[in-house]
């Protein structure tokens, strides 16, 4: 058992470790039946909805994906293998994982309530990192069993609002090629989370190279024909409109997740849909991903520090590689308990 200490954070302060700009190397889609397709067919385009609009509308027809099965890194690995076949060369990386795992790691210094369990395997010098599926299921079951606070909406409804917001904001083709009827009819579209577009990016933090897969909500304009050019991705988020100073702090903490998620895949812009407590979408705000940490520091309560997140992640990944990267095979467990000042790593198989 190895332990990686989170605290004291002062170790991670200062200017951030080197970051390699995320670059999309491949993509894949899940279609409306959640069938994997190794193309960009589920790419969506952003066009804002008419406001105000009720996010709860259509909840009864929500097509919610059953994610109880353990998909491991299947789709990501299939895509990488396909790419390797096409390019005729191996895709080199120290770590391959979903964006979600990296988000949890990066947020660890400031998100005290964040707990996670992951499994890691090292193969030919590459660490494959995935969520411990049974832990995730247990956590979800516990959350759903909690009755919502009086007057609040259920977990299911709140998560529906997020998907509804996406449906309201997305177009299957650029605005110019989409009919007015579709654009205005989005309020009545059946909400489904079956279809997804996932970007596979190559990036680097400190001296660790990473291949990350993650869902991208939309593109602002269109994917550039020149693959060396960055794409103007859009991340869509809903948030309760902050009314009190306490709300504002809560929102700032939420921005930490927004920022990390977008930062990792190189999403330059986040559109936040603010909603009332009852789920009425009232206004939108466009955030420039790069300037979020600075704004939090200068204008906010400075409840988190982006550089610390980056330096922490760089140090942790480095330690992880030292711990398990040289070994040959075997499954390792990475765990962080709620409020724990350490991340534990041990071999399970």
């Amino acid at each position: 058992m190895a332990e990686f200490r989170i605290q004291p954070l002062a170790r991670f302060e200062g200017s951030s470790a080197a970051i390699r700009r995320p670059k999309e190397i491949a993509c894949f889609s899940y279609d409306e039946n959640h069938q994997l397709r190794l193309d960009d067919s589920s790419l969506r385009y952003y066009y804002p909805p008419r406001l105000p609009v009720d996010l709860s509308q259509g909840f009864d027809t929500f097509k919610n994906l059953d994610d109880n099965a353990d998909d491991h890194l299947d789709a990501l690995l299939t895509t990488i293998m396909e790419m390797e076949k096409k390019d005729g060369k191996r895709c080199e990386a120290d770590v391959v994982t979903w964006r979600g795992m990296m988000t949890k790691i990066m947020a660890a210094p400031f998100d005290y309530f964040n707990d996670f369990e992951m499994n890691a395997t090292c193969f030919q010098g590459t660490i494959f990192l995935e969520e411990n599926h049974s832990y995730k299921l247990a956590e979800k079951a516990e959350q759903n069993s909690k009755p919502p606070r009086p007057g609040a909406h259920s977990q299911q409804m709140m998560s529906y609002w997020g998907y509804k917001f996406e449906t309201l904001c997305l177009l299957p083709a650029p605005w110019g090629e989409t009919s007015r009827e579709y654009i205005e009819g989005r309020e009545n579209e059946v909400v489904s989370n079956y279809a997804q577009y996932c970007s596979v990016v190559k990036t680097g933090i400190g001296n660790i190279s990473l291949v990350l897969g993650g869902e991208v909500d939309a593109v602002w304009d269109t994917k550039p024909t020149d693959p060396t050019q960055p794409t103007n991705w859009i991340e869509l988020k809903t948030a309760a409109a902050p009314l009190t100073p306490a709300d504002a702090l809560k929102h700032e903490r939420k921005l930490l997740k927004f920022w990390i998620q977008s930062f990792l895949l190189g999403v330059p812009r986040i559109v936040v849909g603010f909603r009332s407590a009852s789920g009425i979408l009232t206004h939108l705000e466009e955030l420039d991903t790069r300037s979020i940490p600075g704004n939090v520091k200068r204008q906010g309560k400075a409840s988190w520090d982006g550089n610390v997140c980056i330096n922490f992640a760089a140090a942790f990944l480095d330690a992880l590689r030292k711990t398990i990267g040289r070994g040959e095979g075997g499954v390792w467990r990475i765990r962080r308990r709620e409020r724990s000042p350490v991340i534990e790593i041990w071999k399970v198989e």
Binding site: W175, S179, W220
Partner: peptide
Amino acid sequence: KSTHVHKSMLLRG
């Protein structure tokens, strides 16, 4: 050339 009808709408952004 657009085969689509031009729409009287504001653009996003």
